[in-house]
Design a protein around this nucleic acid. Structure first.
Lengths: 230, 230
DNA sequence: ACGTGTAATTTATTTACATAA
DNA sequence: GTTATGTAAATAAATTACACG
């Protein structure tokens, strides 16, 4: 699942991108299962955008040129995202790309208004009407295709909020029901459930922990709740 | 709940903001239950941002000054949002403000990198490390407070999806339960319920119609469903 | 007026992860 | 290391309004 959290698009936090280069080139703690070729594409795209950004801010640049570069970048992203799930450092780069692209698209849209403002042609009060003259030719779609369903080879693709397959969750449910008196996993349990469900160690543990909490805060007894669910 | 759809923040659509000024000043089809004073604040904030935006793009401007203006804008938004629920045209203006603010904050953050790029001091390849030097001092929080609970004076504030007060809905529930065999309103019923709940004629009718549909599609009988809800 | 479809919004639930005991 | 607890992010479900035949 190639998704960039909305919050980091709107409020870019410097802390995250602190050591991109390091992690990208020296394939460190993260499990980078890609060759450097693709990482290079991402870096190249960003550098392209950085240059574009710097030039659009301060000089006159043709809209056609802007569109050309943006489309190339989007194409590149599309190709990459259809092929694989991004690793964490790559997602940071993509976040950068997305932010820059969004900035540039908006700058292009508002450029005319701004120029007019500077020339004093327009009273600021009048902008509300003039603001939408330009058409927005480029839509940057942050959320790429959901690969949960069809793809799902190798990659973990485990993000917050993504539902686990119902079929496998039912195995965890039934384990929990059988051990309702003492719903704590021992090492054997974990290994069995991992094999049966295909989930990772932490997924099994997290699920049971979250389940315990849910029961605790439930007003009615877990057994009754189980009955009502049918 | 004053929320701006994320999608319109990321993909500004010119169509929406086409006739802001018109709807704002001539209080047209929308039920604008506010005086012009507050609408003026919003417009003023946006104009302030437009000017700031135009100057930050092309000249050197002090970061202190930027922060001052941004903080003033955010303060204004906070005051307005704590006081009332925004109408649709106002939300469009706020969307504009939010977009401009986001652009400006990011421009400030990346300004140093861009200047260095232009001077040729830095090879584009090196940017990944330099990009996070500046601290992001301003967080723009799109989602403002939910006023459904405490405020709620006079105004109808009837938007799709906005919950009606629980206390009054219960009156409709009890009428429905009593007339479960033939849950269709006659004129006397409507008038009584309108008076008791304070809802409009169409609100009462809509509620009962939606309730009938809900029961119809429910797998268990309405009586049982009612019992389980307690 | 009715049933039906659907848009806009709010609320609840699920999963992952961080932190402290 | 495990646990309880808090919280972020995504999704699911529910509520209300309104359109059309």
């Amino acid at each position: 699942m190639n998704r960039i959290p909305i919050i980091s698009l709107l409020n870019p936090s410097p802390g995250d991108s602190h050591n991109i280069r390091q992690t990208l080139t020296s394939s460190s703690t993260f499990s980078l299962k890609k060759d450097t070729y693709e990482a290079d594409i991402l870096l190249k795209m960003r550098n392209e955008l950085m240059k574009l950004h710097s030039s659009i801010c301060c000089t006159n640049i043709e809209n056609g040129e802007v569109n050309f570069i943006l489309n190339k970048v989007l194409q590149g992203l599309k190709i990459l995202s259809s092929d694989q799930v991004f690793s964490k450092p790559d997602r940071v780069v993509i976040q950068n790309i997305s932010q820059l692209t969004a900035i540039i698209v908006r700058l292009v849209n508002k450029k005319e208004d701004i120029i007019n403002l500077q020339k004093g042609l327009v009273d600021p009060k009048e902008i509300p009407e003039a603001i939408s003259k330009e058409k927005c030719g480029i839509i940057f779609n942050v959320v790429t295709q959901d690969m949960m369903e069809n793809g799902r080879k190798g990659g973990s693709s485990s993000y917050k909020g993504h539902r686990l397959p119902k079929k496998h969750v039912q195995l965890l449910e039934s384990w929990y029901k059988n051990n309702i008196e003492n719903p704590y996993l021992n090492d054997t349990d974990i290994r069995i459930l991992m094999r049966e469900t295909g989930f990772s160690r932490s997924q099994v543990k997290n699920w049971v922990a979250n389940k315990r909490r849910k029961d605790k805060h439930s007003t009615i007894s877990p057994e009754l709740s189980d009955l009502l669910a049918n």
